[in-house]
Write a protein that binds this DNA or RNA. Sequence first.
DNA 1: ATGACGATTTACT
DNA 2: GTAAATCGTCATA
Length: 220
Amino acid sequence: TMPNSPAVPSLQPCPRRFFATDSVSLARTLLGCVLVRQLESGERLSGMIVETEAYLGIIDKASHTFGSRRTPRNESMWAQAGTAYVYFTYGMHHCMNVSAGHKGEPIAVLIRALEPLEGLETMRRLRLAGGRRKTPLPDRELCAGPARLCQALAIDRSLDGLDLTARGALLCIEQRKSGCLADEDIAIGPRVGIRSAAEWADKPFRFAVANNLHTSRPRL
DNA sequence: ATGACGATTTACT
DNA sequence: GTAAATCGTCATA
């Protein structure tokens, strides 16, 4: 894809201050931004962020840092804003978050779905390589889920702790020069896959680009 | 050392 | 709708 192709909006790297806010605000402003993965081979994979979830830290029963839990695994959630927090779960899946707030405040935003933009062919190959899928893979399922997008963009624990604002980083986020989405273009609902979190499970901390077809199930 | 669990995905009934 | 796949992580001992 050419640098200023009509398919990709005009972009600029998100600066530190973009991430240094509460996780609900960041979850909303990340919608429409582009997650870019620079492969070691030099190839560029990217997709527009179309679905996110906010995790509010020590008070949030659904958060990995609930009750100030601090372990080697979740250390990146405590790091400065704009740090990648990649964790491994269910014995086979990776999920990617972006830390928010400030250093020492363990809040983050989970990236749940992307609309693929660059490197679709490589994404398809990566998605087939890891999984045990037998049926054909539609483009709208390439990155429709937190573990699916990590598989498609080759994101694993080796990228945990990465500074997304560093120049030339293997992983970074770019924002549209035209600004963030309008409120009416954002769909809101409860977070997915949270057990035993009672009242926190129902809070409206899941956000998606309204009417976008590349989001995960259940649709908002 | 051991055991329970998980911010998921896939296939199948 | 249900269940299996699969193992790092963490709490308990």
